[in-house]
């Protein structure tokens, strides 16, 4: 019993080790001083308060999208729309951050709420199409990513753009709109508290409420859920609303926490990274914290490495690809699990 139970944990650990090993191999091939570079990669992100701060800052958006995708995957919905929603809600929050005048308490609250609600509504569209007409949620969500990016970029270029700035960025946000920093010496902002609260709420929702229960059962076996009397179409729309809300909140928080102008001229990629975070977390809200921190850690490591050595930071996308390919590979190490099962069956017999 013992070993099979921990199989998934062991497997995840094996995937991470293989990914790191590949990172070391790449560094060894590319770098003039491989050992020193590996040292930088592993050590620098946790060497100073500032760097640890960077890791946590980076983890905040990953936690938001990872959480959103986890819930969707939990309901067995293959929706990768968090990417576009994250971006577009960032635009929405920016508009309010620029144009509203409120006190520094209400301003971010209103901007983030608006971004989240817009995210929820946008996300509901593929959900409704899926629940009502069984339109493939994956294709619609992928198309929506591009549509939302186009519309968002249009808003940036035509309505928000600050002609006086040198780059393609928006007007400055009102200072009242920006999230305050919570640790001196870092840029960690109140978004961290928000996302941790969301994760705990999502955990309670998923495991401790009847709606979360419906969501989990619909994801495990939709026929069973229907047979038990659950309205699975409603569940599907609900999970899309919630996931869109969280992804939208993530985009809004990221914009108000880390920048003073909106400046994404391309999709920032956090939505797809969210799929990776969710997979590493096995779609568990609380585990999202750890897997987002891990991903942020290796990313900051790669950034430091690029700054302090001769290996470019883009190495990290190779590592991420390896992790995705292996972590979702059902058959990876399966032979080992089967052998353990057989052994246990024999031991019990």
């Amino acid at each position: 019993m013992f070993k099979v139970k921990y199989f998934e944990v062991i497997r995840t650990a094996a995937v991470i080790l293989i990914a790191l090993a590949i990172a070391f191999i790449i560094i060894s091939l590319v770098s003039d001083q491989p050992l020193k570079t590996i040292g930088i990669f592993l050590w620098e992100p946790i060497s100073t308060k500032g760097h640890i701060g960077n890791v946590i800052e980076m983890a905040i958006p990953l936690m938001f999208t990872g959480l959103a995708v986890s819930l969707l995957f939990r309901a067995n919905m293959f929706n990768l729309g968090a990417e576009g929603i994250f971006y577009f809600s960032g635009v929405v929050a920016s508009v309010l951050a620029i144009h509203l005048s409120l006190n520094s308490w209400f301003h971010p609250v209103v901007a983030i709420a608006a971004g989240s609600i817009v995210g929820a509504l946008l996300s509901a569209i593929p959900g409704i199409l899926k629940a009502k007409w069984n339109a493939n949620e994956l294709v619609t969500s992928l198309m929506f990513n591009n549509i939302l990016f186009g519309v968002g970029l249009y808003l940036l270029n035509y309505h928000l753009r600050d002609a006086k700035a040198f780059a393609n960025v928006s007007y400055k946000f009102q200072e009242t709109a920006q999230l305050s920093k919570i640790f001196t010496g870092t840029r960690i902002h109140t978004g961290l508290i928000i996302v941790l609260v969301m994760i705990v709420l999502a955990h309670l929702f998923l495991y401790r409420t009847k709606w979360g229960y419906e969501l989990r059962m619909t994801g495990v076996n939709r026929d069973f859920a229907r047979y038990s009397g659950m309205k699975t179409a409603k569940v599907i729309i609900l999970v899309h609303l919630i996931a869109g809300f969280i992804a939208g909140m993530g985009g809004s928080v990221e914009v108000l926490g880390m920048y003073n102008r909106f400046q994404w001229a391309s999709l920032p990629g956090y939505g797809l990274d969210g799929a990776l975070v969710a997979m590493l977390a096995k779609n568990n809200p609380l585990s999202v914290i750890g897997s987002a921190l891990f991903l942020a850690y290796i990313r900051i490591g790669a950034d430091m490495m690029a700054r302090l050595s001769d290996v470019p930071s883009e190495m990290i996308s190779i590592i991420q690809a390896v992790i995705i390919l292996l972590i979702s590979a059902e058959q990876f190490l399966k032979f080992w699990k089967n052998r353990m099962l057989l052994k246990e069956a024999k031991a019990n017999a």
Partner: peptide, 14 residues
């Protein structure tokens, strides 16, 4: 390895 084809595609793009 039975990796999910969609996630596999995401990995390739990444």
């Amino acid at each position: 390895f039975k990796t999910h084809i969609i996630l596999g595609g995401v990995a390739i793009n990444m």
